[in-house]
Amino acid sequence: MSEFVKTEHLSFSYEDEGDRQNPALEDVSIAVQDGEYVAILGHNGSGKSTFAKLLNMILSPDSGKICIAGREVTAPDFTEDDMFDVRREVGMVFQNPDNQLVATIVEEDVAFGPENLGLPRKELRERVDRALSMVGMIEYAQHAPHRLSGGQKQRIAIAGIIAMMPKCIIFDEATAMLDPLGRREVMSTMDMLNRDHHIAILNITHYMDEAAHADRIIVVNDGRVYMDGTPGEVFSRIDELHAIGLEAPQTTELFDFLRREGCPLPAGYTEDEACIDALVRLYEEA
């Protein structure tokens, strides 16, 4: 397995009016493997959005290294053309669906990225149709995006990225403005892309339930990596999560409550079914 996104000792600070340095990220080293599904979890202001901006090269770090698809994007000889090459391998989906659509017809919006790559028309057609079918929006190809729901718009934005055939997609709080239905639509699309198409997913979020979908969760707090492990490992450290203003999923919170009252239950459960089974078994054995 190769590392698709890798950061080494990444630091970044914002300068305020008084020229003081406000560190937003300190010494962040993470690695995302090819085809891996990773959630970056942190509350508002934890530094996770700065991290996203560094990854898509809107900001450049004060110190440290970022490597994407085997290229060091922070190297001094990294050119505009290299940036173009990296961006076709790593797609990004942003928070506000209205601010990332560029055309008034769904299929033309999806085609925007591939058009920029200069692909021949036949291939554009194939890629657009394939991307729209993958997110289940093919029957909306001729619709106007602004008449669709938030979840549907976000799926179109995802299709626009898939059509560029990236190896990794970064979701920057992509569900924060959606209703529960829209969030479910986007989450199942994310899961599908990772499971069926081996696209690496990096989901930057503050929703615990979403983070639980990932293979690995990286918790960020105060600009540093606070925890890094499987959902089970991370959620079993419930007191540490509470300490930084995060919550564990309700099932984990329930188990934690019961354990403190003396029920012999394991830590770190997140799946509803497993949780129900364990509770029924415990009750029957009493």
Binding site: P180, Q250, T251, L254, D272, L279, V280, Y283
Partner: peptide, 20 residues
């Protein structure tokens, strides 16, 4: 009608169904 209930309420209902 497509409305959610809290996740914990869903678990409670499942437990009741299974005899708790």
């Amino acid at each position: 009608v497509g409305l959610d209930i809290p996740r914990i309420a869903r678990i409670a209902i499942a437990l009741q169904k299974r005899g708790v």
